[in-house]
Design a protein around this nucleic acid. Structure first.
Lengths: 136, 136
DNA sequence: AACGAAATGTAGCCGAGGCTTCATTTATTG
DNA sequence: CAATAAATGAAGCCTCGGCTACATTTCGTT
């Protein structure tokens, strides 16, 4: 009844993936709030590359998960939990991009690939990346 | 009407993600074929950590995409395209794991995290990883 | 050869995350 | 201040990838 080793890896990756979209939206809301004072649905949708109903649905999920709040026809704001998550995601993103560049990936490609990769970088891997970057 | 830079990144990541599941199944079918002579639905499901109807659905999609073939109640086999994809995926997976280990990620964690990350590693990033590994 | 177990197929449910279309509210501006 | 434009909401559709439950086929064993 024990899972094969492979299965554990795949289940782990699926769990990480389940968080990915929420992480991206939370970080985007954080960015927009910093830049413009608030995050509007239209701006979120535009920057995420989706239509506005898709952004609305994503925000609804964030609200359900306690990561954001909003009132009808108004901007979206992160809760404390949401803001904490955004900070972690942003920091991880930066480390992943820096690591890619450090091993020779061109900047633009590093930005592109990091977007998908980052969600699967565990704390342990993140620590290893930071250590690698620190020791030049 | 032009996409913001952010949007391009997210769209790119979503496209990569859309391939991820198929890549994983194709590689698994290739592995099982090598180990056992054929890939059975039950074995695929077991190793992927899903129930058998989920594996059946995934195989149906692979067949639609021209990556695999099968007849009712028989094993699954890759087409030439499927086998080619499996080889590329396997090679990329190995490079990603090796790179993670090279920058100090413990082996077991490298295996875990690579599973999700690999699907977002572009050819250019892969080449950079290989160059980095080559120059020790 | 028949029976029971194991494998596979099939149907249908669910949530996530895309989309389009249309209604409604808010904001701008003449 | 009224009309129009822009933003948001709401409804409903699609695919994917999980799942359970049940039907069917294959296979191994007696």
């Amino acid at each position: 009844m024990t899972q094969p080793d492979d299965a554990e890896r795949f289940i782990h990756a699926r769990n990480a993936q389940a968080m990915a979209v929420m992480e991206d939206y939370v970080e985007m809301i954080s960015d927009l709030s910093a830049e413009m004072g608030e995050a509007r649905i239209a701006d979120i949708a535009n920057r995420m590359g989706v239509t506005h109903p898709t952004a609305t649905k994503a925000v609804a999920r964030l609200k359900r998960e306690g990561l954001a709040v909003s009132r009808p026809y108004r901007g979206v704001f992160l809760t404390e939990d949401g803001a904490t998550l955004a900070d972690r995601v942003r920091a991880r993103h930066r480390v992943v991009v820096d690591l890619l560049k450090a091993v020779g990936v061109p900047e633009q490609t590093a930005e592109l690939d990091a977007e998908g990769m980052e969600h699967h970088v565990s704390d342990e891997t993140l620590a290893a990346f930071q250590a690698f970057l620190a020791r030049g």
